[in-house]
């Protein structure tokens, strides 16, 4: 008798806990659900209700640049903002940056991991500190440098994707540090036997270390992709013409011009922009966290 009462009490406690967590999650995710609902809400204004009376795909047509018939005016509308283009600009810039970033940082990471030289630890520390310099203030220098570079190489000036990518490539240190950590965990004996077999330094690096490091290369590449895609500061200062905007800059200008009337289209655009990043994030978040806390938990 008392046993089943205890059991019942236990069950109630668990139910209460689950309910508490679910309601917490509900509150946390309210903004996300709200945006999803707004993106298919025909009124789509900034103060629209949580649950729409009817559904529409017009906001989606708008951001994808597909003509549609407006429900209020009955006219055929086509977006004058190249939102989809901004999105693909961002994807393009982030992809190229990731690939080049990997190419640039792996060799440096290899040097820091495999070569013993004086001041190695100090240089790692220096790299990490210097890279903390606020990007925003380097902007004047970036601007002047790209302005000059653009006169020599047209694709690398201000208001060009090439120039923007070039500036991003300055951010190698953090990636070097991440990749170096992984290289450190690969036993040196593998390389040593290859070296005995007559492989050069570069060959061991290229043919042995790199293939063994695909997981970290994938993580660093995707991390760079996320960070580049999400960056707002650099493109907002370097890019000037609307067609060149990245998603972050374009969408900020799009919504800031008129918060009240573009809310529905903005909501759809948010989902478009957030979805790929969220998917990538969930595919690698375990590595991100273990990578970040690795140094900490060892100490």
């Amino acid at each position: 008798m008392s046993d089943s009462f205890e059991n019942q009490k236990y069950m109630m406690k668990r139910l209460a806990k689950n309910l508490a967590i679910i309601s917490l999650i509900f509150i946390v995710l309210l903004p996300v659900m709200y945006i999803v609902s707004i993106s298919v809400n025909p009124t789509g204004s900034i103060g629209s209700k949580m649950i729409p009376d009817s559904l529409t795909l017009n906001h989606w047509y708008y951001i994808l640049g597909i003509p549609y018939t407006d429900t209020h005016t009955g006219q055929v509308v086509k977006s004058s903002f190249p939102i989809l283009k901004w999105f693909f600009n961002s994807i393009k810039i982030s992809m190229i940056t990731s690939i080049l970033m990997l190419a640039l940082s792996t060799t440096s990471a290899y040097a820091l991991s495999r070569f013993k030289f004086k001041g190695r630890n100090t240089s790692i520390l220096a790299l990490m500190i210097i890279q903390m310099f606020p990007n925003i203030m380097a902007m004047v220098a970036f601007y002047l440098m790209l302005d000059f570079l653009g006169k020599i190489v047209p694709g690398l000036g201000t208001d060009s994707h090439g120039g923007l990518i070039l500036v991003y490539l300055g951010g190698t240190p953090f990636n070097i540090w991440l990749i170096k950590g992984y290289f450190d965990s690969i036993p040196k004996s593998i390389e040593e036997s290859a070296r005995l077999d007559g492989c050069s330094r570069f060959q061991t690096f290229y043919k042995i270390i790199l293939p063994l490091s695909t997981p970290i290369l994938a993580v660093v590449g995707l991390l760079t992709f996320i960070n580049t895609f999400s960056d707002f500061i650099l493109p907002s200062i370097l890019l000037k013409s609307q067609d060149n905007f990245t998603f972050a800059v374009g969408i900020q200008i799009f919504i800031s011009e008129s918060f009240s009337s573009r809310w529905g289209q903005f909501a759809a655009a948010c989902i478009l922009g957030a979805l790929p990043i969220s998917v990538i994030f969930f595919s690698i978040h375990k590595y991100i966290i273990s990578g970040l806390s690795a140094g900490a938990s060892k100490g």
Partner: peptide, 10 residues
Amino acid sequence: PGLLTFLIFM
């Protein structure tokens, strides 16, 4: 390679 871009742009 990694240091060069870092030097120039950082």
